[in-house]
Design a protein around this nucleic acid. Structure first.
Lengths: 255, 255
DNA sequence: GGGTCTAACCTGTATATACAAGCCAACGAA
DNA sequence: TTCGTTGGCTTGTATATACAGGTTAGACCC
């Protein structure tokens, strides 16, 4: 409730983050100076300074004394929901997300899948297969099984508009996640979907998510090793989960 | 005094972090109030406020309006240490750890390494290269740079008995870790050391660790993709980070 | 033209001041 | 005793002001 409204520096931060997400401010763009923000937002320069300084700490912008404040291409902060939803990650980098649905079918749980999702053999499972694009470059093949009883309307969703993980969290907040990261060589069709050179490895994330105390989804996420990495920052108290980042810039820099 | 001394809020942060590291301030203890710090450190309250606020963001302390500032319990440091030390991981699996030292030399920081370790160019850096074995099977190539001023006796250690990360934590508990996970193809010599088939990818972990508020070590850890994976488990409250596991058992199960 | 200098920006830090709101112990009235 | 008030501490935010030091464009001089 906004009985007491948010602090002004936070409002300013939110506005700038919104502009970055909307594409109004693109990576490399210059953000208004402290004095301009102070004037246009009717706050003091110190308040604008705090907003921009915190955005710097959170990895949204870079500040260069004497020149100005510039939108960064990647974001260092992280939360589980960021990891969950690749569309959010991409938006936060100021890039364009798109998606192609390869498959959306129903099948019956059996064997390892049934035990992984803790369902009786023969239970209904929705199987989704999608390719996610960042600025039209393929960045992830998502292979996901969803417990049908948890998300009955799953197959009716338009997953080119809302990602599976966003849809799942819209049903019920995820309570737990379990994941394994591996390096593998991709199967040929995956390599083609991701437009990878031969012999280039994929970074695979196997992730099982829980809601209402039961496993609801098992995902196998494959990323091209040369264009994607997982980063994380850990502090003893508040340890944070890995976050995905593309590494295109790093490759460009290393040349 | 250095040419341009550190900002006062940073000096204050450093002093408090030091007191926490030394045990002078223990978890749960109350830190002096902003007004007390301002008076005792001869700074304004706003400067003390900034120092304490940043320490909050960095997870060192917790602040409660009306009550005060309290040192947080960094109990999860054991988690970071677990991830740090491959010998512990292997022991936990009931396996035998051994290690071969390939290189232990001194070199000078420059370029990216100097900035990653936040040292002036030309500062002394120890460079270690080791292969770790689990039950005589090579499982990790460790390539580590250590800030010499943090661990002066580094090169005298017998790293076949104590791993570099165990040695570093024995000097001072690690407070922070930052890591990136990638899938790559190994260089030929790494492939040989790890006894990998050709075309098999490596799972690479780049990890920078912090102690006493400064980066002290940068490690590049390479693991055979077919024998190693990173697993993690996340719960909303008590989030825990990745743990390494070998995947021999998993492979056996999948047959 | 080519080099230099300066003025006008920018960020970064530091301070004094102000007010709001949370917390708690001490005090006093019922 | 018990309840409520109050005063003094705390953090949290917001502002105006000041100065230091980086950057750049354009004026200026040779």
């Amino acid at each position: 409730m906004s009985a007491t409204s948010k602090p002004r520096y936070q409002q300013l931060k939110d506005r700038i983050i919104g502009q970055i997400s909307d594409g109004e401010l693109r990576p490399g763009d210059r953000v208004s100076s402290e004095n301009q923000l102070a004037h246009s937002s009717k706050v003091s320069r110190m308040t604008a300074n705090r907003a921009l300084r915190e955005l710097t700490d959170e990895g949204y912008v870079e500040r260069i004394a004497g020149r100005g404040t510039f939108v960064l291409d990647r974001r260092a902060s992280s939360h589980v929901r960021d990891v969950q939803n690749i569309a959010d990650e991409i938006a936060r980098r100021g890039h364009q997300h798109s998606c192609r649905v390869l498959r959306a079918t129903r099948r019956r749980a059996r064997g390892e899948l049934a035990s992984a999702l803790d369902t009786p053999p023969g239970a209904s499972i929705y199987h989704l297969q999608l390719v996610h694009f960042e600025n039209s470059v393929p960045i992830q093949v998502e292979d996901r099984d969803v417990v049908a009883s948890f998300a009955p309307a799953c197959l009716e969703q338009d997953f080119s508009r809302i990602t599976p993980s966003a849809y799942l969290t819209s049903i019920c907040p995820l309570q737990e996640a379990e994941q394994v990261v591996r390096a593998e060589l991709p199967r040929p069709e995956v390599r083609d979907w991701l437009q990878m050179k031969s012999q280039e490895p994929v970074l695979v994330v196997l992730r099982r998510t829980w809601a209402r105390g039961r496993p609801v989804s098992f995902a196998r996420l494959q990323h091209p090793g040369s264009r994607y990495e997982l980063s994380g920052h850990y502090r003893p108290n508040e340890s944070e989960f890995a976050q995905a980042t593309d590494v295109v810039q790093l490759e460009a820099l290393s040349k």
